[in-house]
């Protein structure tokens, strides 16, 4: 039986994600674990995460999960969600600057407040439903209409160096990378497990994905 491993490193609550994956996983078993040896055996891995990047990287290292994620990312489908997507990049400017996993070249940067005299002030975190424009075709977009709505909660966003690694974008005073991808790795800034049917469809596509990123 194939397995989808959800990496539980103490950064946020995995109830909804687990339930959403179980809903779409078909015959696969959903394993929620912090044991690198159990996780490395899974056929697909999900790296979730809510909170600060420094604590996230510390916990990944403490539980010896950072090496496991890097190792797994070489051969099997890996999905990062929210903070779990941000740590896929090289660095985040959150918490005074933190080195991350470096699987996708680029930085994670904070939303910048517009000038004080701007008509509409920018509220950070960017919290709520926003549209995602698909930057290029990808197996994970199958059956998901372009410009679908997804649920976001974040104050920082990815800024990938290579435009090919941008999989989708959203508009919050400026266009930012709402989804990234490189080979067998994908990352969503939004929460598919909180994005109703469009989100479940993405998770279903991930559960069926062979990791071909073209």
């Amino acid at each position: 039986m194939e397995k989808i491993g959800v990496i539980d490193y103490g950064m946020g609550n995995l109830h909804s994600l687990g339930k959403a994956l179980e809903r779409v996983a078909g015959n696969q078993r959903v394993v929620i674990s912090y044991d690198p040896e159990e996780l490395i055996e899974c056929d697909r891995l999900v790296l979730p995460g809510v909170g600060g990047v420094k604590a996230a990287m510390n916990e990944l290292r403490r539980l010896e999960l950072n090496e496991m994620v890097i190792e797994a990312s070489r051969k099997r489908p890996l999905l990062g969600i929210c903070l779990g997507m941000q740590v896929l990049l090289e660095r985040s400017e959150e918490n005074g600057g933190v080195a991350a996993l470096g699987l996708i070249p680029g930085d994670v940067v904070r939303f910048v407040d517009p000038p004080l005299d701007a008509v509409e002030r920018l509220k950070v975190p960017h919290m709520g439903w926003n549209r995602v424009q698909q930057s290029r075709p990808h197996a994970l977009w199958a059956g998901v209409p372009d410009e679908s709505w997804f649920y976001f909660v974040h104050s920082y966003h990815a800024s990938p160096v290579n435009p090919e690694h941008a999989l989708g974008s959203s508009d919050y005073t400026h266009r930012f990378a709402a989804a990234v991808a490189r080979d067998n790795i994908v990352g969503f800034q939004f929460h598919p497990e909180k994005s109703q049917s469009a989100g479940l469809r993405l998770l279903a596509n991930f559960a069926a994905w062979d990791g071909d990123g073209r």
């Binding site: 809903r23 439903w129 059956g143 998901v144 209409p145 709505w149 049917s197 469009a198 279903a204």
Partner: peptide, 10 residues
Amino acid sequence: RMPAPLAVTI
């Protein structure tokens, strides 16, 4: 948000 009906239901 006006959810678009998806081609495939989950």
